[in-house]
Design a protein around this nucleic acid. Structure first.
Length: 798
RNA sequence: GCCUAUGUGGCGGAAUUGGUAGACGCGCUGGACUCAAAAUCCAGUGUUAGCAAUAACGUGUCGGUUCGAGUCCGACCAUAGGCACCA
């Protein structure tokens, strides 16, 4: 069989017949299957894409045959740095490079026979799409969810751009890998932190994989504790601190402010050693996040002379230090230090010879950092035996005296939404000297990216757009005076924060999606993507969606019902595929050599879908062999249209197994079940048309071309794309005769054939008759005989 | 350090949720076809002993529960991923 020819043939039939175009407002039940849309990079499709696309494609094809109206769309996440880099180098507009890459990607995907609904295709870089991304940004502005802040941001000196905490995780630029530094810059921010609780809470409405939920929960980093106010001596101010251990307040022997704490400015006149404090601040600033947050490094700090705090529970004076182990971005940017019961405070106290007062004892001389013990040196807490009780009592005291209160902190930060890049959605805001920041009127959207020749970032770190006066200079929509456009663009995450909604109504030019379409399609039923997006993309998308929900713009709170993540495909040597390691497999080559169907079957058979798997060309050859045997077995075809009675059970079992396995993403065992069925058919002298059609039908979601072709060639029935998925008879899943094991004292000694409904006496007799069983019963006394119907017999002897 | 996974032949991986461990595929060995090779087909393939029947051992390690443990419980080891000076 000429794979290439028949693949092209069927791909054309499917496209011409519009078989995969989902209908809005269909009376059928809907099912929405989504795979993350790719960034169309210059290096083309990866075999990893083939794995996840095939998996969800098989599910989509099966669901359609079960009568669902399936939405299975595809598009392009096409803003991003690589296209911009390419543009800088080659002096062409990034949209041109993107366009070329999309053409390549699309044809590669189509060569694999994916059943995407191409009628809904779009790219995030299409003005018709980013118009609505901008419009939604304006909704954030309108509802006071966006603000501009002069903030110290993560700065990549290489890319000359600000980065979100997410993009600069670990103090390293995600894009280029260089060390990031800090820079003050006025940035658009989205108030994501205010959604922290809602994002946690919303997880209840989803069915994400556990590890994804856990990753999100960790990222949000909820921590319950108390805010306590320490008055600063001889001022009206208080130093606020956050603590989860209010029970240890009597053990406070010093306070620590982060180097960025505002009091260091406010009270600079009172600080007697201002010079050394300033010097310490400078040092902290020049350190990268990695250097600053290295928990193993020795503690550093400077005592602030002239500022003293007062412990509100016992009115004792407490010295204040400045140290970079306290982070400005978490809690209040200052802490109360209890060296007796906190390892970090302990290390600091030891280094600078500060008092250590134990307030919890476990009866030994050790200092318990966590866990319970009896309270000591703590006045009204003394004698309390558990931490929870002591915290509760202290909280009550703090609230009564108005010196503190219960509070919750989140690690999650607001979303830095500005990027100093060209190739992103322009932020639709205009700055007027008189009116301040004014949104671009909605009817003027989209704010288009201009056509220019130079995409170099500016030396000052402004976006390349700042170099284009005719674009920057405009008039204020409010007062009409000359004004300037915002030159920053949106982050790459913006376009992917609502794209699944657009698929529901991709060509709407009146609104971002019609309410009717959203009501019909509802939540995404199955959303597949990489584990690397378990926190960032998935949190941004859920935040964005929840915001739209709160404005009444979408009819449901959570966007995705189920989220699954595929494992990576590693090189043949078990390492991640990369050009430098020379272990990259190009899917095109594999399609050419073995056909699209063989590649699809192989990638489903390669192992557990969620786990990484190493590529093996021999494994692929094995799957090709399997398909060849499927084709060759037609030699045994006879013109009968029933199922041989001795095959009824295995056919029913296989229908059930393949159906269940594809819908629960156990593709490897679905393929193996089909291989078992084929082996069984191969043992037969002849096979009937019906039998042949069923095995082809079951294989069709995974290997769609060859199965359609053979079905047509042997005239077995209508096209699978027009057929109902086979069903099984649940009364015919087990045969009435079964072979079960016979154990003596738990060790297998024989096996016997029994009927499913055979009575225990008869089974017992059969078991005892076995020669090898008898041998092991010699000179032993039978204590009891355990019979588990259709499973096992175990004879217990002494 | 904390959290979450995972650990089964030479390899990728199965195992009806406590019931015949190693399905299926790869690889390997032997055979058939062929002048030969490829392709294909047949047989074998956890380890050790044995011609064999069979026996002992065997799911990271050590212990436990049970008639019976890959599966449950406890402790530990290893690998991968996430978080991490988060107060």
């Amino acid at each position: 069989m000429n794979c290439k020819e028949i693949e092209k043939k069927w791909q054309k039939i499917w496209a011409d017949g519009k078989y995969f175009e989902a209908q809005n407002n269909s009376p059928k039940e809907k099912y929405y299957i989504l795979v993350e849309f790719p960034y169309p990079s210059g290096s083309g499709l990866h075999v990893g894409h083939v794995r996840s696309y095939t998996a969800l494609d098989a599910m989509a094809r099966l669901k359609r045959m079960q009568g669902f109206n399936v939405l299975f769309p595809m598009g392009w996440d096409a803003f991003g740095a690589p296209a911009e880099q390419y543009a800088i180098k080659n002096k062409i507009h990034p949209s041109q490079a993107v366009q070329e890459n999309i053409v390549t990607f699309k044809s590669q995907i189509q060569d694999l026979g994916m059943s995407f609904d191409w009628s809904r295709e779009f790219a995030t870089t299409d003005p018709e799409y980013y118009k609505w991304t901008q419009w939604q940004f304006l909704q954030f502005v309108k509802h006071d969810m966006a603000y501009k802040a002069e903030k110290e941001i993560n700065w990549c000196p290489q890319c000359k751009t600000g980065l979100s905490n997410e993009d600069a995780a670990g103090g390293v630029c995600e894009r280029c890998g260089s060390k990031t530094t800090k820079k003050l810059k006025s940035q658009w921010m989205l108030k994501m932190r205010s959604y922290a609780e809602s994002l946690l809470d919303g997880l209840k409405d989803t069915d994400f994989m556990d590890k994804i939920k856990v990753a999100q929960i960790n990222w949000i980093g909820k921590s319950e504790g108390a805010e306590v106010e320490f008055p600063i001596k001889d001022t009206d101010d208080v130093l606020k601190v956050f603590t989860t251990r209010a029970d240890t307040l009597f053990g406070v022997t010093f306070m620590v402010m982060s180097p960025e704490h505002p009091y260091l400015e406010k009270y600079q006149d009172r600080i007697q050693n201002l010079e050394s404090v300033r010097q310490y601040q400078e040092e902290a600033k020049s350190k990268t996040d990695i250097e600053r947050t290295d928990a193993t490094k020795e503690k550093t700090g400077v005592l602030i002379k002239g500022l003293t705090a007062i412990n509100p529970v016992n009115n004792q004076e407490v010295p204040i230090w400045i140290s970079d182990y306290v982070l400005a971005s978490y809690g209040t940017g200052a802490i109360m230090a209890v060296p007796a019961h906190d390892e970090r405070d302990y290390a600091f106290a030891k280094k600078f010879n500060i008092d250590i007062i134990p307030v919890i004892t476990d009866g030994t001389n050790n200092l318990p950092y966590v866990g319970d013990g009896e309270m000591i040196n703590s006045e009204f807490l003394n004698g309390i035996k558990t931490k929870n009780e002591a915290i509760a009592k202290m909280l009550k005291y703090l609230e009564e005296k108005h010196i503190g209160h219960k509070t919750i902190n989140y690690r999650l930060q607001d979303w830095i939404f500005s990027r100093q890049r060209f190739w992103g959605e322009p932020i639709p805001m205009i700055y007027c000297d008189d009116c301040g920041w004014v949104p671009v009127p909605e009817e003027e959207l989209p704010v288009l990216l201009p056509n220019v020749e130079n995409y170099e970032p500016t030396e000052t770190g402004e976006s390349p757009l700042a170099n284009i006066p005719e674009w920057v200079n405009t008039t204020c929509p409010k007062c009409g005076k000359p004004a300037k456009r915002e030159t920053d663009t949106m982050p790459n995450w913006a376009g992917s924060s609502w794209y699944w909604l657009r698929y529901m109504d991709a060509h709407n030019d009146k609104e971002f999606v019609s309410q009717d379409a959203m009501k019909y399609w509802g939540m995404v039923d199955y959303y597949n993507g990489g584990m690397e997006h378990a926190t960032r993309h998935l949190l941004y998308a859920r935040f964005w969606h929840q915001f739209l929900y709160n404005q009444g713009l979408v009819p449901f709170k959570e966007p995705f019902k189920k989220r699954v993540a595929h494992g990576m495909i590693l090189g043949e040597n078990g390492e991640k595929m990369s050009k430098s390691k020379g272990n990259v497999i190009n899917p095109d080559d594999m399609v050419k050599a073995y056909g699209a169907d063989a590649l699809r079957v192989y990638e489903m058979f390669i192992g557990d879908y969620e786990h990484d798997a190493s590529w093996s060309e021999n494994g692929l050859k094995g799957c090709k062999r399997f398909l060849d045997r499927i084709e060759r077995i037609a030699d045994k075809l006879i013109d009968k249209n029933d199922i041989n009675s001795n095959l009824e059970i295995i056919f029913n079992q296989t229908i059930k197994k393949v159906t269940d396995d594809i819908l629960t993403m156990n593709y490897n065992t679905a393929v193996s079940a089909l291989m078992i069925l084929l082996n069984k058919l191969d043992e037969q002298e002849t096979i009937t048309k019906k039998e042949y059609r069923i095995i082809l039908h079951l294989l069709n979601p995974i290997a769609p071309h060859i199965t359609e072709e053979l079905n047509e060639q042997y005239n077995l029935g209508p096209r699978f794309v027009e057929s109902q998925w086979p069903t099984y008879d649940s009364n015919k899943l087990v045969s009435n005769e079964k072979e079960i094991g016979v154990q003596v004292n738990g060790k297998l000694r024989a096996s016997i054939k029994v009927m499913t409904d055979e009575n225990e006496e008869s089974i017992k007799a059969k078991a005892l008759q076995e020669e090898n069983v008898q041998k092991h019963l010699e000179n032993k006394e039978i204590v009891k005989i355990i019979i588990i119907p259709n499973r096992i017999v175990n004879i217990v002897v002494k």
